[in-house]
């Protein structure tokens, strides 16, 4: 219906996406929170030294929020603000690598499944069926139970729980891309398979994959927290968010601030990732909004 666009200024699809994203206020707030989290990871030590979060002081245990201890103190008199702040690092140290690796593996296996022979696709899908028949949470628990609860092992556990879904997402995106005529066109002028995959299929799938990545990030944040909460995540002195909740369990009536602040941190993080994801999806495909 609308054609003959003003051609004074050309925007690449990437620039267009950024522009449209910048028009979406709610998603910008989400992005701001995500950036804040990253800043906290990098500069947290300058805001409040980690020392404050492990130093025990029984005399000031279970105090409510005050000017000195913004989020109050826990059962050992440790500053909860410091623990929440530094907890960001541990949660993200698991969530980011797990998501990123899961997506990369998803893209590679998804591209192969979409691109190469049917039998590879069939085998891959059946293997994934087996994995997906077991709830992801259970799978992650089993891995941690077997390997022990370190950050590295949690990353492995999250990967195993998340890879099947991300491969499936990538595969379905790429199957629709491989059916596009420009793939046929590229083949007709002599592109080799790796050209097709790396020049056409993967770049065109990236937008959708980034959206799925942000959604995954929020899911993994929640999953990591819930694992630590039931005591199968990072071991107690480490101020991981889920572990903080776990410690606060006994004091939920007497010292609710112990559970409220880490809870808010988790909620805010998961929400922000989702907001960014939603905003990206709309920015990538404006038609979806109507």
């Amino acid at each position: 219906m609308f054609m003959g666009k003003k051609s004074s200024r050309s925007m690449s699809p990437l620039q267009e996406t950024i522009y449209r994203f910048s028009q979406n206020k709610v998603s910008l707030i989400g992005l701001a929170v995500v950036i804040l989290l990253l800043l906290v990871i990098i500069f947290g030590e300058f805001v409040t030294p980690f020392e404050n979060g492990v130093k025990q002081n029984i005399r000031i245990r279970l105090q409510g929020p005050s000017a000195e201890h913004w989020f109050g103190t826990d059962a050992y008199g440790r500053d909860i603000f410091t623990r929440v702040l530094h907890g960001t690092k541990y949660t993200m140290m698991i969530a980011f690598p797990a998501t990123f690796i899961a997506e990369v593996i998803g893209i590679i296996l998804g591209a192969c499944a979409a691109f190469y022979s049917r039998w590879f696709d069939n085998i891959l899908m059946r293997v994934l069926d087996v994995f997906q028949a077991i709830p992801g949470q259970l799978l992650a628990l089993a891995v941690v139970a077997a390997l022990g609860g370190s950050i590295f092992n949690l990353v492995i556990a999250m990967l195993i729980a998340r890879i099947p879904a991300s491969v499936r997402t990538a595969r379905s995106i790429m199957i629709s891309l491989v059916g596009q005529e420009y793939i046929d066109a590229a083949r007709s002028y002599g592109s080799r398979d790796y050209h097709l995959i790396f020049r056409h299929v993967i770049p065109n799938s990236l937008g959708a994959m980034i959206v799925s990545m942000t959604i995954n990030l929020s899911a993994i944040t929640l999953q990591v927290s819930s694992m630590s909460y039931i005591g199968l995540g990072v071991s107690p002195p480490t101020p991981e968010w889920g572990a903080l909740l776990s410690e606060a369990r006994e004091f939920i009536i007497t010292a609710p601030h112990m559970i409220i602040f880490p809870g808010i941190a988790i909620l805010l993080t998961a929400l922000s990732f989702n907001l960014v994801g939603d905003g990206l999806r709309d920015a990538l495909d404006p038609r979806l909004r109507d």
Binding site: S10, S12, P13, Q180, E181, Y182, D184, A185, A186, S188, Y189, R199, H200, P203, N204
Partner: peptide, 16 residues
């Protein structure tokens, strides 16, 4: 070479 039917799907949208 080939010229395709659909001018919308026959060229890669991510390329100039």
């Amino acid at each position: 070479q080939m010229i395709f039917q659909d001018p919308y799907s026959s060229i890669d949208p991510r390329m100039s």
